[in-house]
Nucleic acid binder design. Structure first.
Lengths: 208, 208
DNA sequence: AGTTCATTGGACTCGCGAGTCCAACTTGTT
DNA sequence: AACAAGTTGGACTCGCGAGTCCAATGAACT
């Protein structure tokens, strides 16, 4: 009855690029619509058949988790190498600039929002993300602060709390807005001003 | 065929307490399961028939919004009266304590989480909440800081940014954890220590 | 030429949840 | 007694989305 002679079945267009294409499309839809994005929509957006989708990822949940862990790794701050010989102020400035560039894109904020939302259904998504994301960043930063404390170049008193404070400082308000969907438009100049204000505040409180 | 002679129909158990009962039950379910909580479940939890539910609130969305605006009003910080004659440090300490008590209950955090999640579907829920919640609090706080600046009792340089900073400081890490569903267990002692640390940090940076 | 494998599209099952409908009931009012 | 208004439970419609099935197809390897 059906005459499927006109279908163009690409078999192995690129070995595993299929997977990547699906994940990209899905990430975009999840970001925009949350976990409610339908599998049909994802398949269409990825230009892939539903069946293929299910071949690659057994279920919607699995697909979602794959994306989360994938992107969370990308957010793991690339600041480990921040060189211990430079003055704390400079290190913090760089750190903050990098963090802003990384975390305050509409993509990252939408992504975080999706995680928060999905975490209500699948609690381990939220906690898993916390482990590989914020927790690691905090651990790195507070170790660095402890080191600087010992070197007498900072005087935090409590590196862990101080690290929390610094992270709160730079994330704070913008993150709240982003999560609530309030547009956050920052010109490069405003952004740089913000960076300075954050570091200044911190240094005024915790310089030796 | 059906013999509904054994139903106990309470007609006007209390004039409008029905509405309140529904909202309580719904708020609880929404908090726990997000917007996915089913209307059947809500009706059951409120010990009310589905029909009554729809009589009171025309639709699920309307019910949800009613709850949001209701609770958002409750969160509007009761700190307007913080007395302008007391030393800034004391005012901030009180403010922080109140804020912690108000915003860091599992209820409030779950509530915020629900808003963030639902905001993905109904953008105006997120932005509306921002208007009546965080924005007002920030406005109040930055006005107060501007006043104290003029009186020479603070030296923030930029009251608006400083107010953002202070709010970030007290919300920051705990809020992130809460939104991601990571348990936040703080003993009263730890909490008080946190309060002090926040205010200290701020004062060290912004005392004249 | 034949085998294997991933893919395709589309039809299909199945369950769930929003919203509606209705006949029976209860209470307060007239 | 009769009526109005609000309630109840349960059955019902309807649409949507997750996941399955299948016959047909094309590429790569042998």
């Amino acid at each position: 009855m059906t005459r499927p002679s006109e279908t163009l079945a690409q078999p192995n267009p690129t070995p595993s690029s299929t997977r990547a294409r699906i994940m990209d499309a899905a990430a975009q839809l999840f970001r925009a619509q949350g976990y409610e994005a339908s599998m049909d929509a994802i398949a269409t957006a990825a230009d892939v058949s539903k069946q293929t989708l299910y071949n690659q990822f057994g279920s919607k949940e699995e697909l979602f988790k794959s994306i989360i862990t994938d992107r969370a790794a990308a957010l793991r701050a690339p600041l480990a190498e921040s060189a211990s010989h430079r003055p704390p102020r400079d290190v913090l400035m760089d750190f903050t600039r990098q963090y802003f560039a990384l975390a305050f894109t509409p993509q990252s904020l939408g992504f975080l929002r999706t995680i928060v939302a999905a975490g209500q259904r699948f609690p381990e998504i939220g906690t898993d993300f916390y482990e590989v994301g914020p927790k690691r960043t905090h651990a790195m930063l507070s170790e660095w602060m402890a080191r600087e404390d010992r070197l007498g170049r900072l005087d935090t008193g409590d590196p862990k709390l101080a690290a929390e404070h610094f992270l709160s400082l730079i994330l704070g308000h913008v993150q709240t807005k982003g999560l609530l969907g309030v547009p956050v438009a920052l010109t490069p100049a405003e952004l740089e001003r913000r960076v300075c204000f954050c570091v200044d505040t911190f240094m005024r409180a915790f310089a030796p």
